[in-house]
């Protein structure tokens, strides 16, 4: 079974690596990190992501959300809170495992 691809965007390297590790640990998801908006758009151009998670410290976050909704209207974009904490799985479950 192929892994569901999740793009995580944020500027704090240690926090992003924590989020990546927690997502990959689940076994059915695979995370890719983008530290900048440009990196995120490049990744989206090359991979079929199921979900985008917005972490902390993103520059022009509102503008990025608007761009994503225009370019990828069917792609769920979730604002992540907590920094790779106990909330992470629930945020993903709510989108990828509805009901």
């Amino acid at each position: 079974m192929s892994l569901a691809q999740i793009l995580i965007i944020g500027s704090n390297r240690t926090i992003m690596e924590t989020i990546e590790r927690l997502i990959n640990k689940n076994g059915i998801w695979e995370a890719t990190i983008a530290f900048t908006n440009d990196e995120a758009l490049r990744e989206l151009n090359s991979t079929n992501f199921k979900l985008v998670l917005l972490g902390a410290g993103i520059e022009k976050e509102t503008q990025l959300i608007e761009t994503l909704s225009q370019l990828y209207p069917a792609l769920p974009v979730v604002t992540h809170y907590g920094g790779g904490s106990g909330l992470l799985y629930a945020e993903i479950y709510q989108v990828l495992m509805p009901g």
């Binding site: 704090n12 926090i15 924590t18 992540h80 907590g82 790779g84 904490s85």
Partner: peptide, 14 residues
């Protein structure tokens, strides 16, 4: 439990 706890871990936006 006594003597135990949460090791260093991150948080953001909460």
């Amino acid at each position: 439990t006594g003597g135990m706890g949460f090791g260093e871990h991150p948080h953001d936006n909460m």
